Simulated scan of single mutants.
Amino acid sequence: MHIEEICGTQVEFPFEPYDCQKKYMKNVIEAIETSCNAALESPTGTGKTLSLLCASLAWLEKYKSFNRPKILDSNGTINPIAAKNENSQLFPTIIYASRTHSQLQQVVRELNKTRYK
């Protein structure tokens, strides 16, 4: 695995990323951190799927490490009273959608190449 520091996030990539992949991951992380929509494009074969998965999942790991939910007690176990009163999600959810089942299968194959699987 190759670790790349992108916008303050340690992204683990299965190999040394190309410049276009680094730029793509930078745009993904910036969009997430600013809560903005992003229409990102890159030519076929440039590693968009792998870049999107690694950047977003690395950001989520970083977010989880710095934002401990209020419903967890000091031991890291869920406090049932606080959980009952908590109306929000513990952490942001990443949803990956695709038009076809075969495209989703390809995403899973790409995900399995990473340590984020």
Rank of each mutant, 00 (worst) to 15 (best):
L52P: 00
Q89C: 11
S74D: 15
H2S: 14
K84L: 11
A83D: 15
S88V: 07
S88R: 10
L53E: 00
G76A: 09
I81D: 15
Q105E: 14
A83K: 12
T44S: 15
H2F: 11
V11H: 00
D19I: 04
E16L: 06
T114Q: 01
E30C: 11
L50W: 01
M1C: 15
C20L: 09
K113H: 06
I32T: 10
C20M: 03
I32H: 03
I95H: 10
T100D: 11
L72H: 10
S74H: 08
S98A: 15
T46M: 08
V28N: 00
C36W: 15
E61I: 06
A31G: 08
P92Y: 07
K26L: 09
P14K: 02
Y116I: 00
V11Q: 03
V28Q: 04
K62V: 08
R115I: 15
E61S: 14
Y24D: 01
R68V: 12
M1H: 14
L60A: 05
A55F: 01
E12K: 03
T49W: 05
E16M: 08
C36P: 12
N67W: 10
A31D: 09
E86N: 14
I29K: 04
T100S: 13
Q10M: 04
Y18K: 07
C20F: 07
N79C: 14
E4P: 00
N37G: 06
A97H: 11
T44C: 10
L90E: 09
E30K: 13
S74K: 13
G45Q: 07
L104T: 05
K84H: 13
A55M: 02
T77E: 15
S51C: 03
S51A: 06
F13Q: 00
T93Q: 15
T9V: 10
I6N: 02
V107L: 02
L52N: 04
T114K: 02
G8Q: 03
S98N: 14
F13V: 02
Q103N: 05
N37W: 08
V11P: 01
N85R: 14
T100A: 13
E30M: 13
D19H: 07
C20N: 06
P14D: 06
A82H: 12
L104R: 05
N75Q: 10
I3H: 05
V108W: 03
K48S: 08
N37R: 07
Y18P: 07
F15H: 09
M25L: 04
S51H: 02
E41R: 06
E5H: 03
A39C: 08
S42A: 08
L104V: 10
Q10W: 08
E110S: 05
T9M: 01
A55L: 00
P80T: 14
D73H: 07
I6Q: 01
L57E: 00
E16A: 05
R109W: 06
K62W: 06
T44K: 15
I95P: 12
Q105G: 09
N67V: 13
N85G: 09
K84F: 15
R99G: 15
E4N: 06
C7Q: 03
E4L: 03
Q106F: 06
T114M: 04
I95R: 15
R115Y: 11
Y24G: 01
D73L: 09
E41K: 07
E16G: 02
R68Q: 13
G45R: 05
Q89T: 10
V108G: 08
G8N: 01
T114L: 03
L53A: 03
M1S: 13
E41S: 12
